[in-house]
């Protein structure tokens, strides 16, 4: 009896153990796969920035070289494309954030007529497919006969779709903002402008900074809207697209890697900064 009973008793035990192990590690395995899925393409981009391709195409590993990094602007047109993109991203994100902050303040603070409508309109560019935005902007610009396509049309387009992101980001912060703080400042002798400078601005600064970074990130890699409205100007995404058709140079990977590293660094700085704030506050 007992000799039979033992293995049958052990069997479910064994199964249970296996199940327990799987259950214990399933999250780890899942996380590993998830990050692999997420990071593999980026890793490939990075690795291939050190490739030494023999032909036009940078698709198979040929050998290690620093040359792509050393001559990062060794491809005709890449340098001006990068600078144009940076220029547009900086100007567009600053203007969009400034305007977006003011719109957010107005939306949260003042009960004006048409506030609800404005709230919906702000969301419109976020939910409209980019291709529709790009195409309709093109139509608009074409109808304005005095407009020449180029830097200004790209800038206007970028500011337009960045504003919504800025408004949404800053608004989220302002909604939780204790209005009594501003009243307290005024109560203590600060006029409207001083109150804004000393209380409103410092307390919304993290959101404004976040909006700025977000706008910058969105602007610098925008392709669709830019493509419709760039005329003969070439931004970096447009350059990559053009280059990819005739064989992407490894320099594209270099720039891609550089942008990724800078973004990562900015994020880390932000995290560290927030931590320090929390510890101090």
């Amino acid at each position: 009896m007992s000799s039979i009973a033992v293995p049958t008793a052990r069997e479910p035990n064994f199964l249970a153990t296996v199940l327990a192990v799987v259950r214990r590690h399933v999250l780890t395995v899942y996380s590993f796969l998830f990050f692999a899925y997420l990071l593999l393409p980026i890793a490939v981009v990075m690795i291939f920035s050190f490739n030494n391709p023999t032909g036009k195409f940078n698709y198979t590993w040929q050998g290690f070289t620093w040359d792509n990094w050393r001559y990062w602007d060794g491809v005709p047109g890449i340098r001006s494309a990068i600078f144009l993109s940076l220029e547009i991203a900086v100007v567009a994100s600053v203007i969009a954030t400034a305007l977006g902050t003011m719109i957010a303040l107005a939306l949260v603070r003042y009960g004006f007529r048409g506030r609800a409508t404005t709230n919906i309109l702000i969301f419109l560019p976020l939910s409209t497919p980019e291709i529709v935005l790009g195409a309709s902007l093109l139509t608009l610009f074409l109808n304005l006969s005095f407009v020449t396509f180029g830097f200004w049309t790209i800038l206007i387009a970028h500011i337009m779709f960045c504003i919504s992101f800025a408004v949404v980001t800053v608004k989220a912060r302002l909604v939780g903002f204790d209005r009594h703080l501003e009243e307290a400042a005024m109560d203590l002798g600060a006029n409207e402008w001083t109150t804004f400078r000393k209380v409103t601005l410092p307390l919304t600064a993290p959101a404004i900074l976040a909006a700025l970074l977000l706008c910058f990130a969105i602007s610098i890699d925008d392709f669709v809207v830019t493509y419709f409205n760039s005329g003969s100007e070439v931004t970096f995404p447009l350059f990559v697209w053009g280059a990819a058709r005739i064989g992407a140079p490894a320099q594209v990977n270099v720039i891609g890697t550089a942008i990724f590293v800078v973004a990562l660094a900015a994020m880390l700085v932000n995290v560290v900064f927030q931590r320090r704030r929390e510890v101090r506050a």
Partner: peptide, 20 residues
């Protein structure tokens, strides 16, 4: 007359201390 020109000060229920 705006609050900042009135010779009164307020203690708010929520205190409204400047957190920063």
């Amino acid at each position: 007359t705006p609050p900042y020109k009135r010779d009164v000060n307020t203690v708010f229920q929520s205190y409204a201390l400047f957190p920063h």
